[in-house]
């Protein structure tokens, strides 16, 4: 299923922040993880991911480090900052509110326990 661009613009950053919550990741890894963990719903190409990463970095939600990987390649690893965590919490709250609203309208089936647990 392909997500509308406007919806993706809202969902993409929070998804990236969520992925970086537990550990640092590099670009290709993020793309793979997004595609796999969202069953391809939130899959995005490089042309979308890297500008998004640079934007999140400009806002101070993530920071990057260049390191040489065990394979010998130079990679840029991204990790969440304190400000990024706060932002993630806020965004999650907003998404939950939207989901609840959708449920109450009958657009989404309830309950939302799984989402709450995930957050």
């Amino acid at each position: 299923m392909r997500v509308e661009r406007e919806l993706m613009r809202g969902a993409g950053p929070v998804a990236v922040l969520k992925l970086l919550e537990r550990r640092e990741m590099y670009g290709y890894e993020l793309i793979e993880a997004l595609s796999k963990r969202s069953d391809g719903v939130l899959a995005m190409g490089q042309s979308t991911l890297y500008p998004m990463l640079y934007n999140l970095e400009a806002k101070g939600f993530i920071e990057s480090t260049e390191r040489t990987a065990p394979s010998g390649r130079e990679r840029k690893y991204y990790r969440l900052t304190r400000s990024g965590r706060t932002q993630l919490a806020e965004q999650t709250g907003q998404w939950l509110a939207i989901v609840r609203a959708m449920q109450s309208l009958g657009i989404l089936p309830g309950p939302t326990a799984g989402w709450e647990a995930a957050s």
Partner: peptide, 27 residues
């Protein structure tokens, strides 16, 4: 550097150059 690393990661993971180019999006 970042794009190079990305494509090299992709190739190392078994993807073909055409697949990687196709999934890149609009240049």
């Amino acid at each position: 550097r970042e794009l190079l690393a990305h494509f090299q990661d992709g190739l190392a993971a078994g993807a073909t150059a055409d697949d990687l180019a196709a999934s890149f999006g609009d240049p």
